[in-house]
Amino acid sequence: MRSFDTAVPVEARAICAEFQGRQVLRDVSLSVGRREIFAIIGPSGSGKTTLLRHLLGLARPRQGSAFVFGHPVAELSRHELAGLRRRIGVAFQGGALLNSLSVVQNIELPLKQHTRLDAATIRIMTHIKLELLGLLDIDALMPAQLSGGMLKRASLARAVIMDPELLFVDEPSSGLDPVNAAALDDLLVELRDSLGMTIVVITHAMETALNIADKILLLDSGEVVTVGTPTELLQSRDARVQSMLQRRPVRAGSAADDYLNRLTAGT
């Protein structure tokens, strides 16, 4: 096995994927450098979460390969994949906290499963992460009692409890108010700066990507539109990039336009 220290944290080579007979990813390639915040952005249904599932080894691509720390995730045995995943943290879009455990039990679960730390040490480490994410007052609650924003923060706390080298965050700011969304963006930058994490953020919020990412990949209809720094994206003349930047759909003589024109002509 290649060393974790020298390998590229995340790489995708020409991934093609299908979902119920529909092609959802077409020749998607990317490379994420160490200590980089890499944002994958795109409109809803563009294939972002599907791409994440392939990078995590939760789905097998029809063609192409995904590599994490140099290992082809789709070709690893369950045991090898488990070894690799101990170096990774994942915060899922809906939280994906175990419903039968309280918030604090969810967050300390990886520590209990993978370390031989005593209960007091686990409690201290969990307390630090709870404090970091502003969850101290809700640690005893059950996931069903949390708001969407709290669920996201609790999921992120669980993802970083083992101080992973690589962190995947799916839609960190969706459903959050602007203040909490900005705070979460700042936290991701802080995690990268203080703990040296490599972070892959899946988001449809251009503001988040422009604020925190070192590199942005724009995905649309399963295809890579562009990859570049925030500055390069802002200077792009591509219609789909401009559409995302201006939060307006790409319109090309649609039926809706015709209908509106006819309505306007009638008045």
Partner: peptide
């Protein structure tokens, strides 16, 4: 369906 099992797998928990 709620991705809780995926989350367990991603935490390297069988």
């Amino acid at each position: 369906t709620d991705s809780q099992i995926d989350a367990l797998e991603c935490m390297a928990i069988d």
